[in-house]
Design a protein around this nucleic acid. Structure first.
Lengths: 223, 223
DNA sequence: CCGCCTCCTGACCATCTGGTAGAGAGGCTG
DNA sequence: CAGCCTCTCTACCAGATGGTCAGGAGGCGG
């Protein structure tokens, strides 16, 4: 009798999706309640699932966080990769009057794509904020993901500088500054939302414009 | 035998300071490890004290957080109050060529004092960041502290606007934007520190300059 | 000396935490 | 049908956590 509504039919499809569902819920919870503020029991309860199921897919809570970070970093990397692939061909069609055309277009396109991702998936910002706290578990993880990207961008920028298409500056410091700005924006958005100001775009757009202007004044040789 | 080094002499002075010591340690821990990541046992152990002592002074963990927030908000309010008191008399001596002299000086002085506090006591930024997370305990507390300040600043700004000494804009939105910028800076600093960039002032100074420029362009009638 | 007050502590507790062990249900392959 | 694999569950646990209770130590006024 009591067994009637016991378990879901657990079709093959639903099975394969459990892992993704857990990842989604974990991302949301880690981003809002924080890592310590998230309990596996609550997480499971929110999915109508038992905690042991989570531990079956992700060996430990710590590894669940790692998986969440990995997936987000993967999404970001993929988006950036796509920008790098397309901007090379589409950029020349742009109407900008700036010098050294496509170089700056790539920088701008990447900044825009990062901000777009951040706005389209606000939970990512929450996670980024949580994980960027020094000493936080996952801070090292996110760092290992970001470091290759950073190193690559840095090499590219330094090549551009050497070729005279960018003004000479400290590429590392510039990248770090840009990164911290994005993280800062993440916090700003949450603060504004908490203050009742809805998903307002204005401050974000303003900050994006500031960042772009800062980068341009640092990099554009015609400035 | 084993009782020899049992307890501190607990002079009247040390007694009265226990509460403050706990507040200091709690501020540091809440700001770095977060509220959930802080345990009363660890907190007490760090002070060579038993957890029950903490609970004696502050009835519960939650109230300890409230007390920490209260003290910080009090410090901030006091600093702002002092600026408001002194700027009125000292401002006229400034060599600025800007219009509507003392109004803008007050705005600038207040921005500077907030940033100075933030830099002199970095733990405050950690707490602000922790507490500004929507849904966080203490978020409502900090809000009740900030709302009167905000309302007061807003009224003052609107008076200035009405008198033509400030350009007309949405005061509320402007204040919120400024506030979120400060919170964002808090996160930025921690991110930079985590990335190995020491207590570098450059990004902070840059952001302060940006904020000031933004405020000026929004408020200065001669712009 | 006595009682009282402040401050602190040891013993204890209910609850929640992440994590382990083992079994059951269903599908796939032989 | 048998055996295996995948996925989820129930049952359980050791440790940590926030919090309660009663009591001890010292200062202080009577």
């Amino acid at each position: 009798m009591a067994v009637t509504e016991a378990r879901e039919p657990q079709t093959p499809e639903s099975r394969r999706n459990t892992r993704e569902l857990v990842l989604d819920a974990a991302l949301a919870s880690f981003g809002t309640a924080g890592y310590d503020g998230t309990s596996l029991d609550d997480l499971a309860a929110g999915l109508g699932i038992r905690k042991q199921t989570i531990l079956y897919h992700f060996v430990s809570k710590r590894r669940l966080l790692d998986a969440v970070v990995d997936r987000c970093a993967g999404d970001l990397a993929a988006a950036l990769e796509q920008v790098l692939a397309t901007s090379r061909t589409e950029a020349p069609a742009r109407a900008s009057a700036s010098a050294s055309s496509s170089d700056w277009d790539r920088v701008e396109a990447m900044v825009r794509v990062v901000f777009r991702i951040a706005l389209e998936r606000p939970v990512l910002l929450g996670l980024l904020r949580e994980v960027s706290r020094p000493g936080s578990p996952g801070a090292v993880r996110v760092r290992t993901h970001l470091e290759p990207l950073m190193a690559r961008a840095r090499r590219w920028m330094e090549d551009e500088m050497a070729a005279g298409r960018m003004r000479r500056t400290d590429a590392q410091l510039l990248l770090l500054s840009a990164y911290s700005t994005v993280v800062g924006v993440a916090t700003e958005i949450e603060v504004l939302r908490a203050a009742g100001v809805g998903p307002t775009l204005r401050p974000v757009v303003r900050r994006r414009a500031e960042l772009l202007r800062f980068l341009r004044s640092s990099l554009d040789p015609s400035a």
